[in-house]
Design a protein around this nucleic acid. Structure first.
Lengths: 365, 365
DNA sequence: TTGTACGCGTTATCAT
DNA sequence: ATGATAACGCGTACAA
């Protein structure tokens, strides 16, 4: 009662050797029915429910656990629709593998507990990664654990699942330009983990540690090289509203279009525009990125880039499965599909106001 | 190169004993700076990145992992808004504990891999549980692992986090009755895992293995004891549409109100009603359950019961933390708040049609 | 402060 | 088909 029964206890009670008892549970070797019965009965009597996972794992070197590493508050994984879809696909793909998904943060604040370095994982998926990516990556690679990186550059040898962010965002910007907009603001995702919101003066690419942010910005800049850049603190409607208010604050310096790096941010901007008495798309065009379903957005239908989020997750799972079987996993780059909604329209006829606004908005003072 | 360095290798290289090296990494005992340096240098040279989690876990008996067990496809955990919120709260609450969340299914189809019985977890949270609950529960209790059950009856001794489902659903039904409805259909969640959709004839309580379904139905029946019952196959908008079509199929037997056991189902019913040319709430009143945000529902605002999903998750996390510290954890029952939207209205004036419909709808043929 | 010795519970290997 | 043996890699009394 004080201590749990072990397989040795069961074996003794059943009158067989520990290895035989072990084999009864693992099924790795044929066992006579009589022996099996003896062992099972003994186990039942002792309340033995099977091998201790810890010991088995130590011995076999496998835990059946795939770690999924987020750089942010874990809850975000459940609240961000893109991540949610991605996880759905991932769960799907590792399911036949029989593996469980262990949700981890890259940098666990409290000392003890499971972190990337202390969790018994067979493989890892690094997602939404940024500056801390290298750190996490080294930890995993150092342990010789197969790893897949989503949306981040991990160097050679590490399979990568990502999007054609540059090209996709270029498409959206191009669409906006075709509509005749010149006073454009680019609303980006955070530039680095925990980055504050605000205007970014002459944002140099190498100051942006979040790969997604950098690439999408790069794409937009191929069309609008000198458009002002406002960085949001996170990808959420609330942050989008805050950013929208800041961007639309000065009536004399209002853009006629906002290129947002996520749908949630775009929705926030639309709300902010409504607040400010602007009509979308007549007074302000807004583009998003992700192509998620957004509740309560009617009658708007966002002009955006639809990314195959679930497929991305599934691909990561497939890659993990391959690596666990000792095969090589290939990097995959998914393609976004441009979808024109009703949140973009031709630029308003150029008034002195808009013209001066455009001028004021140039990044160089 | 062939095999990984162990702490013994590091100790040897550093010229200290294994236990000293161990202490350097765990920090459980003061170590002289000189020794620490020696060990750290040796570790760096050997590419040793810290204790093997498997071995450490076997030794200490702790893994820093909390298992979260779903009865369904894991992806569902990420697509169902209620579960999503719940997980957010749970992640929140176990975070200070430094524990990772391991997502598991109650019954893993493929043989190998992490299951409830083979995963190195310190504690378990059973969620959305039904008939298989007992099975999962036995597995966990047998291993002496602390467990918390969400939305399910696990018997005494097992802390339970749930809702006042009966009372809450009674409130909604009562509201519907106050509006004068007599031709009412109750649209329930599945009656058992993988239960098929369809009309349920004289559903006896004890045939319903899903606790949530049973309790909410019980609440509705306190007001409408003989209302026909239609069971959905899952909680989703799509299933709601399918159920709605079936419920509204016969114009002569149409109800004037549908009491749905989840918001998603309710939304589906509304869509089906629109399809059928019915106006909500003028021709058909619909109530939901959960109080989640639903995109694209405007101009409707669901009459529903708002449940504190995130708080539920948080409570589970707190309970787990308590049990891991050897304290007792209390069961908690959360209260839903009735919220009247614009999807319910007074029953249409009784026509011969509606009257006969009500008659036809009585469960006894 | 450091080292010695042992066991955590299991499973792979090999021999029988 | 079954059994003996030897790790797996670590943490922690306890002694020095």
């Amino acid at each position: 009662m004080g201590t749990r029964a072990t397989i040795a206890d069961v074996a003794r009670k059943a009158g067989v050797s520990p290895s035989t008892a072990s084999v009864v549970f693992s099924g790795k070797t044929p066992v006579s029915d009589a022996t099996r019965r003896k062992v099972e009965d003994a186990a039942a009597e002792l309340g033995y429910t099977g091998p201790d996972p810890r010991a088995a794992s130590l011995r076999t070197g496998r835990s059946g656990i795939v770690g999924v590493v987020f750089e942010e508050h874990l809850g975000a994984a459940f609240l961000d629709p893109v991540k949610t879809l991605m996880m759905d696909g991932l769960a799907d793909a590792v399911s036949p593998l029989g593996a469980g998904l262990l949700l981890l943060r890259d940098h666990e604040p409290s000392g003890r507990g499971a972190t990337l370095t202390t969790a018994p994982i067979d493989a890892a998926v690094l997602v939404g990664c940024s500056g801390r990516l290298r750190e996490s990556l080294d930890a995993v690679l150092g342990r010789g654990i197969p790893v897949v990186v989503m949306e981040g550059d991990a160097g050679a040898d590490v399979p990568r699942i990502d999007l054609d962010n540059v090209e996709a965002q270029r498409q959206a910007a191009s669409h906006v330009r075709t509509l005749g907009h010149s006073a454009v603001v680019i609303l980006t995702l955070p530039h680095r983990a925990d980055g504050p919101a605000g205007w970014v003066e002459g944002a140099a690419d190498d100051e942006i540690t979040v790969d997604v942010t950098r690439d999408r910005l790069r794409g937009a800049r191929e069309i609008y090289p000198s458009a002002p850049v406002y960085a949001a603190a996170a990808s959420s409607i609330d942050e989008g509203v805050a950013a929208g208010r800041a961007i639309l604050a000065d009536p004399a310096a209002r853009p006629t279009a906002v290129i947002a790096q996520s749908d949630l941010l775009a929705v926030g901007v639309i709300r902010a525009a409504e607040e400010a008495g602007l009509r979308v798309p007549e007074d302000l065009s807004v583009t998003g990125f992700d192509g998620i379903e957004i509740d309560g957005l009617a009658p708007y239908e966002l002009t955006t880039l639809v990314q195959p989020a679930a497929d991305k997750g599934r691909a990561a799972g497939v890659a993990v499965a391959a690596m666990l079987e000792g095969r090589e996993a290939a990097s995959i780059r998914f393609t976004c599909v441009f979808r024109e909604g009703n949140t973009t329209a031709a630029a308003p006829v150029e008034t002195g106001l808009a013209a001066s606004g455009a001028a004021r908005l140039s990044p160089t003072p």
